[in-house]
């Protein structure tokens, strides 16, 4: 059997979900027998490839760049997993929604800056008006709440997805877990 192609994507999240993924420790070896990690902040590939079987997406959709990425990920993946609360609910990144992006940029780059007060406008992507969970932009196949989901949750879920077994996610994790 050829190995499944696994990708992991990092949008607006703290990387905690990826850390928790790595926390699978020696179970990663077991996983490596079953999947090839074809794209991830943890590997070298620069472009999201076509024909991905499972894409794990960390983070909310907060910038124009996140939006571009998530559409490509969706188009190139058979199964998209919203990984962690930011991807599932918007979570901490969405806490700026009630006040909007201008207020948050001003606080960070003007009010709190002692030198070089300026709002970055080159290289960094433009913030969207509203931070949204992944499923508000593209179809999500599996929702994995948790901040972050535990390594044990990752292991159970990935083994079930790879082996095509049934999954009872609410029995494993919840919002804020």
């Amino acid at each position: 059997m050829s190995k499944l192609k696994l990708a992991t994507v990092w949008l607006d999240g703290c990387s905690g979900c990826h850390m928790s993924f790595l926390d699978m420790d020696e179970r990663l070896l077991e996983l490596a027998e079953l999947v090839d990690v074809v794209y991830s902040p943890l590997v070298d590939a620069k472009e999201f490839p076509a024909g991905v079987d499972i894409a794990l997406v960390e983070g909310a959709v907060s910038s124009a760049d996140d939006e571009k990425k998530i559409r490509k990920v969706r188009a190139h993946s058979k199964m998209l997993v919203a990984m962690g609360d930011c991807a599932v609910t918007g979570n901490v990144p969405s806490m700026r929604n009630p006040i909007g992006p201008e207020a948050i940029l001003n606080r960070a780059y003007m009010e709190n800056a002692s030198a070089q007060q300026q709002i970055p406008c080159v290289v960094v992507p433009k913030l969207l008006k509203v931070v949204r969970p992944v499923h508000e932009l593209v179809t999500v196949d599996v929702f994995l709440p948790g901040c972050p989901p535990s390594a044990a949750t990752f292991h159970t879920v990935l083994m079930a997805l790879v082996n095509g077994e049934p999954l009872d996610i609410p029995a494993l994790t919840r919002f804020g877990a």
């Binding site: 599932v88 009630p98 901040c147 609410p170 919840r174 804020g176």
Partner: peptide
């Protein structure tokens, strides 16, 4: 704005645990 991950009641919240009990994942 129910941001469970940074809420003081996370782990002791009836809304959060009911969501889990009733199988809400999003």
């Amino acid at each position: 704005n129910h941001i469970c991950s940074v809420c003081v009641a996370s782990g002791h919240c009836e809304l959060q645990s009911l969501a889990q009990e009733l199988g809400l994942t999003h």
